[in-house]
Design a protein around this nucleic acid. Sequence first.
DNA 1: GTAGGGTTAG
Length: 717
Amino acid sequence: MVSPIRPRFRILRFTSPRGKNYLVLPVHLANRLFSAEPIPSGPPPSPYEANARLKALVKSERLRDARRLFDEMPHRDEISWTTLISGYVRAADSLEAFSLFYRLLSDPSLSPDPFVLSLAFKACASDSALRPHGECLHACVLKTGVHPSSVFVATALLDMYSKSGYPARALQVFDETPHPNAVSWTGAIATLVRAARPRDALLRFASMLAAGVPCDSHTYAIALKACADAAILPQGREIHARTLRLGLHATPFVANTLGALYLRCGHLRRGLTVLNQLRSRDVAAWTTIISTHVQLGREPDAIDAFLKMRAHPSDGSNPNEYTYAAVLSACAGLVRLTWGEQIHGHVIRRGFAGSKSVSNALVTLYARTGRLDSAEILFRETPVKDIVSWSAIISGHAEESHVEKSFSLFSEMRVTGPAPNEFTLSCLLSACAGAAMLDAGRQIHAHAIAGGLEADAMVTSALITMYSKSGSIEETERVFAGRRRDEVVSWTAMINGYAEHGRCRDAVELFDEMPAAGLRPDGVAFIGVLTACCHGGMVDRGLRYFEKMGEFGVEKGREHYGCVVDMLVRAGRVAEAEGLAARMPVGTADGVVWTAVMRGWAARGDEEAGRRAAARVMELEPEGAAGAHVALANLYAGKRLWGEAAEERRRMREKGVRKGAGWSWVAVGGGEGAVVFVAGDRSHARRENIYGVLALVYYEARKAGYVPEQDFEAEIE
DNA sequence: GTAGGGTTAG
């Protein structure tokens, strides 16, 4: 028998510009230079060599060639399978990866070792369709007891549950991992971040440090994201310092989260500095900048950043689906339909129209700009509707007061869609609040309890607002008393509830208790307490709160000035109100504030001051100002200056300004439905009874010592 | 031959 001799040299034939030629090379060099060429002769490669070639092909992303080699290999061991499967996982072809894994399972000569098991779970993590298979595989692993202690398998499993939306299971896997390493800890921290529990994530990070497990850039990136999500600057700074010591601060992932953290906490310049440390801003960095501007309500800056990004051609200047989603949400925030439509065009041309983030952002854009028909078409065309898609279309209808429609979509969602979450329920609740639909609101409350969402801050505050606006202060207080956590939003909702129900003392007392509960009132909470002071006539107290805003780091906005000006006007301190309105920062003042001042002077019958205030209203709102015209006309009429009053009405007609009637409505009992009415309405069938009761109220009020500003008899004829 | 990280939409 002749044993094959391995040739030491290979003769390569090639075509050069001078014609056919031959080259003789040592075989190892030839193989390295022409590795894509099949070895022309000799025995089949050893399993070891074949695996090495397979690895090289997978590494250079030549998956088809790798597959061909794999299929032709006479001997395939666990390493061959693992190598090829890892190629499919890397190429995001989870289905092919998992089906190969199944073929491996059915071969009795092979055993699913920790290497290939980790990959199988990873494939399941990146494709939701495979999740049931992953759970089944988990059960098999537990039952057969193969490699239960591999930290690799445990971490892949943790990640699968984490990414499939089962944080509790993921953390259980982590807790049962005997020797978790940095990767396992990072997975556990990332799980809490994904589950919107950034504070818990930071606690876990602290435990990791306490356990002495060394962190790497992956860990710091996710810990910084937790700080950014919770807007906790001090801890973020501490982590920043750690990354500086290790020289990890300028690695793209760390720098991007650091930038996001500072931007999120309002330190724009520092955030931009951190992002500028990167040799070049990548798409994620630009997207962070754009989306932060959107989150801070600075949509024009977001658009600006997008234009800058496009103006500097580099690797990072090509927007991706996330970038487009952020820009579209800026257009939605600005209610700039035309800009949004332009971006929609870009998105279609760049092939991102099918992306989930983008189509959800488009639904929101069209919904916010009042194009609910377009929003609905895009929603229907979204192939896989997730919770965000459903919430977007439901909230679009809810915000336009299409309550019926939002509820019919909700019913449809319950049949065919995902389970509602805190966003879905809170926007339905605010729709109920806007229409005072107590029964429908109670049904949503039941859904919140059933879904375990009633403890969520957004849901709690939406429930408080719904019960309050629907007139049930008892249920409002019950929800507030049953809160699980103290959050500024729920406290603010309760303060507003008290203020609306005339319990202004309770409102201010609750506000005063906020610091003791560990809460720092924000701008919205201040609007609530100022409204309470306004309604309750607590003028000096209101002024004190207004002055204290700076101490809490809250900027005085248009609404705050509006509340205080209104409060002073109602208390008859019109000159002070006017002084305050005049001191409003440039760009903050609006017609509403000056209309209040104007009404104040009108009530006092001071026509000169009234004219002065009216001039400011008309200057600020040349197109509108109906309120100012009417108030001015009424002021003249009150002074029996009929000519001037008629002149004012004529000017108003000339401008084409119309004062819309202030419609109001009330639902009495259950069966009658809502009754809609305007001032002086006489159309109700039971008007006799209504005015009878009104007269009684008037009589009792007089008996109690109240003196009406206008005569009631005159109002009811 | 195996596991973990940043940017997005309500």
